[in-house]
């Protein structure tokens, strides 16, 4: 999504995700130690993660991308990689290089008890929150002024400037929204995996990008479809072949897709204007 508009791989996206997870962990731990429990902790952790991821996304865009909007293509790419390295090591230095256990914030729901071995409350939470965010995103992009501006910008940036769309604001907003979603994903996945470290963003970033490319960049249902396919291939492949190669599959899938169908499954090929 973010990619579709700025036409640039945001290497720092994974880092924003990682920071979201850390913030959630910190908030949740502080609250738990202060004696709070239950869904309130999850909600607060989520809210803080969203705020901070959004804020980081905003700041990253302002520092590492905005000044380079008219620079040659390689420049923002390299600066994004730099940003990603910086953020990773910043968290490594101020927090810890080790894995931290992440509390499972999603409460067990009693009514799911009988079927919890096939469909746990984790699954329910992940499924419902993901669906909600997706619906919200689609609605936002389809019906709000800002959403329309975003779509216009991704079509033709020069034209959009001419018709008076505030490009800077649109791109900032896109970053913030992308980061917000990253934070939601981070909290859910961290709860599920039950541990985090400074490095999770890198792999997550690659996987998210794979999913986006798989589905067709800039297409929301495409991204969801992409994620599903990626998740399934990964678990099948690791289940049936060798578990050591889990991450290889994400990479391999990405490589294969980009080579054979760079427009993605649901995307359309665009001819470059000359």
């Amino acid at each position: 999504m973010v990619y579709g508009i700025i036409e640039l791989i945001n290497f720092a996206h994974g880092e924003v995700y990682m920071i979201g997870a850390f913030v959630a962990l910190i908030v949740a731990s502080v609250l738990t130690m202060a004696g709070f429990t239950g869904p309130a902790v999850l909600a607060l952790a989520m809210v803080f993660a969203i705020i901070y991821s959004g804020a980081y996304g905003f700041t990253v865009e302002k520092i590492a991308y905005k000044p380079l909007r008219h620079a040659p293509r390689l420049s923002p790419l390299i600066s994004a990689i730099g940003m990603s390295i910086f953020l990773q090591n910043y968290v490594l230095l101020v927090q810890t290089p080790d894995f931290l256990p992440f509390p499972n914030l999603i409460p067990e729901l009693e009514f799911l008890d009988p079927i919890s071995h096939i469909f746990s409350s984790n699954d329910l939470a992940i499924l419902s929150i993901t669906t909600l965010s997706m619906v919200a995103l689609v609605l936002f992009v389809k019906y709000t002024r800002m959403g329309k501006a975003m779509r216009a910008t991704s079509q033709d940036r020069t034209m959009s400037t001419l018709v008076g769309i505030p490009i800077n604001k649109v791109i900032s907003t896109t970053f913030v929204i992308g980061s917000t979603l990253a934070a939601i994903g981070a909290v859910l996945i961290a709860s599920f995996m039950q541990q985090i470290n400074f490095y999770i963003g890198f792999v997550a970033g690659i996987k998210a990008f794979t999913a986006a490319v798989l589905g067709g960049i800039g297409s929301i249902p495409g991204a969801v479809l992409g994620s599903l396919i990626l998740g399934l291939t990964e678990s099948f492949a690791t289940g049936y072949i060798r578990s050591d190669y889990e991450d290889v599959f994400a990479f391999a899938l990405l490589v294969i897709i980009l080579i054979f169908r760079p427009a993605g499954l649901l995307g359309k090929t665009k001819t470059q204007k000359v």
């Binding site: 791989i9 390689l74 690659i206 990479f251 990405l254 080579i259 760079p262």
Partner: peptide, 22 residues
């Protein structure tokens, strides 16, 4: 991979590098 555009190329080469290491 060389048919790909600049930033795709970056990420695919990254992928290849990681695949070889893994």
């Amino acid at each position: 991979v060389l048919r790909l555009r600049g930033d795709y190329l970056a990420i695919v080469t990254l992928g290849f590098g990681e695949i070889i290491r893994l």
